[in-house]
């Protein structure tokens, strides 16, 4: 669905992406993680055709995004981190934007809005940024486009809304769809994504499914660090330590996104080589 070969991108002399290779298939939610300024948004903007790559090949749904074919644009939706909305009622917004997307479902939109506790009769003008974001998340999901890109979707959402967001996203993906959620707030993607991509130093340094991660890593709590075999990373917790260790006993543990990301940041070499070893 998305094929990227040797993609290079820079802002002037500042390199952002170098020789990036990626192949993403439908039916999955991808978490694009990375520190601030790692190039996550730049990658998303190239996938949807808002930035022109300096070099390399990029193919999305069989189209070159930068050619900006309207048929291609009908099947891709980008929810940007920040946006300005017109001062109109939600219904008017729907009336003017939904017809551009042939698979848009008004029923789904209403359901998502209800889930977020946003009345359909509200006007966008009087809404807070968080509420507007909920409207936009609902709209993005209701477009039912083949590719759905979300750039820091949880920014501006309060804690209950983040929970609602996770619940909605978990049930929204259809088999023909692909979703990429870019964020630096990794905890927000807990129990939500199928595949993790980590962008750092102009490259994708980590590209693994959640299943593969939990096969190779165990996320546990330990009172003493010397109790843990093959320890990779640890953090002081309220009761003892939160640890990431090699999963040598095939334990079934739940992926802790924050611990995983911190382990990758501090023990990059060890983590990367663990997953590269066949």
């Amino acid at each position: 669905m998305i094929e990227i070969e040797n993609l290079c991108f820079s802002y002037g002399k500042h390199k952002v992406l170098t020789n990036l290779n990626l192949s993403l298939s439908q039916g999955k939610i991808f978490g694009l993680l990375g520190k601030n300024g790692a190039g996550k948004s730049s990658l998303l903007y190239q996938i949807c055709g808002l930035l022109f790559p300096k070099q390399g090949k990029l193919n999305v749904n069989g189209y070159k995004p930068f050619e900006r074919n309207p048929i291609f644009l009908q099947e891709i939706y980008l929810l940007p981190e920040e946006f300005d909305l017109p001062n109109v009622a939600i219904k008017s917004f729907l009336k003017t934007n939904a017809p551009f997307y042939p698979n848009f479902s008004e029923e789904l939109f209403n359901n998502y809005l209800a889930e977020f506790n946003i009345p359909i009769n509200n006007s966008l003008q009087g809404m807070s940024f968080g509420q507007k974001k909920k409207v936009m998340i609902s709209f993005a999901l209701a477009t039912q486009t083949k590719v759905l890109l979300m750039d820091e979707p949880t920014n501006g959402l309060d804690i209950p809304s983040k929970k609602q967001f996770r619940k909605i996203i978990a049930g929204a993906l259809q088999p023909h769809q692909l979703m990429i959620i870019s964020t630096h707030q990794v905890k927000d993607l807990d129990s939500l994504i199928d595949h993790i991509l980590v962008l750092e130093d102009e490259h994708i340094i980590f590209d693994q499914s959640v299943e593969s991660i939990t096969q190779k890593l165990a996320f546990k709590q330990a009172m003493q660090l010397n109790e843990v075999e093959n320890l990779i990373y640890s953090e002081g917790a309220l009761r003892g330590h939160a640890v990431v260790a090699k999963n040598i006993h095939n334990e079934h543990t739940r992926l802790d996104m924050e611990m995983f990301f911190n382990a990758l940041a501090s023990e990059k070499q060890q983590m990367v080589s663990l997953f590269n070893d066949k």
């Binding site: 309207p70 939706y77 920040e82």
Partner: peptide, 21 residues
Amino acid sequence: SNLENTKGRTLSLMLPATATE
């Protein structure tokens, strides 16, 4: 005016329509 700033621009540019249209 919807193309004035980066915040407002993205949604307008992502609309499925060509520059000519």
